[in-house]
Design a protein around this nucleic acid. Structure first.
Lengths: 175, 175
DNA sequence: CCCGTTTAGTTGTAGATGCAAGTTTTCGCT
DNA sequence: AGCGAAAACTTGCATCTACAACTAAACGGG
């Protein structure tokens, strides 16, 4: 019985086919290199990380450019400790304001300041250009469509609740 | 003239179409979540990061399970300082040995120890299962093919010299 | 109305990473 | 040969992040 179980266990290990393996190796390389490339452009041209920029960008798209810290954490997929420190930095730089929520004073409302808005506006073109150069323009139009579908499929596993694709409704949920 | 130049500048900024933007937002989410998910599985099941595992895996596939530090850095896309510290850790854990190259004593040869090999062998099944669960099995077979082609196209921009897709020839280059 | 529990954030501490500077060995040129 | 420049790491320092512990506010019975 024990030998049989071991054989089963070994057999159960589903390895990757050569094609799957090749796809995975290449994709792993992209996973490693693309974030670094994006961070490089933003740190050179705007003195901030991709995460900083993304945080400001999410705020800039929120109604009234305000979001609760935890809603912002969901959109940026950050842990609360991480976001807390990033916000401290962005607040010190004058790009956001933090104020306790009037209705629930445990919560903090994060507001994009005028300076923060301007920072996004002046940083966005260069960032978009980098995204074009590194990603969109490297792909055929149908590949962009494919990448979108593939990403959607992957997010079903990675983010079943769709935190990162949250609509604006979320900020108006019941409490 | 100045107004005209400004208009040009504004016009030149190539924004993303709605489809492109949707693809990019989703892909960004994958870029953030997938590495974290892989790290989580490996740290829980094997007590190491994905980078540690990948480093050992690259060594395990090298001829004689030996690679120069800089060749390993190219395959893992690590900077030398980063790899140096990771190797110090892996060496302390007994998974690799480091020894100066006999022909060029500036260089260091990194060897996977027997313990390191066993670590890879016992860790690989769980990791492959995670890759299957999170990526391969979420996709239709043709999507795996598409992802491979897309990744190849992106790497042309990200890694023009193909460092991460290096063949074994590299370690036998002239000196 | 009060107390234990949950929620929302912040901070202490330790590990990881990048950049820049330092060290040792080799190369290239005269 | 002989010496300046380059190569292959390694280490110092500053920053970033995660995990866990901590604080403050709100909820939920009894």
């Amino acid at each position: 019985m024990q030998v049989f179980a071991m054989l089963l266990a070994v057999t159960e290990t589903q390895w990757l086919s050569p094609d799957e393996r090749a796809a995975w190796v290449r994709f792993t390389a992209v996973l490693e290199l693309l974030p670094a490339a994006l961070d490089l452009q933003l740190s050179q041209d705007a003195g901030m990380t991709h995460f900083d920029y993304f945080t400001l960008a999410m705020l800039s798209e929120a109604p009234d450019r305000v979001l609760r810290t935890s809603a912002l954490a969901a959109r940026t997929n950050a842990t609360l400790p991480r976001l807390s420190r990033v916000l401290s930095r962005l607040e010190a730089a004058g790009f956001v304001d933090r104020a306790p929520d009037e209705d629930d004073r445990r919560a903090t409302n994060v507001t994009l300041t005028e300076a923060g808005w301007e920072k996004v506006v002046e940083t966005a073109p260069g960032h978009v250009a980098a995204v074009r150069r590194l990603v969109i323009d490297s792909l055929a139009p149908e590949q962009v469509t494919q990448l979108s579908a593939i990403s959607t499929a992957l997010l079903r596993q990675l983010d079943p609740e769709g935190r990162m694709l949250a609509t604006d409704n979320d900020s108006h949920e019941q409490h």
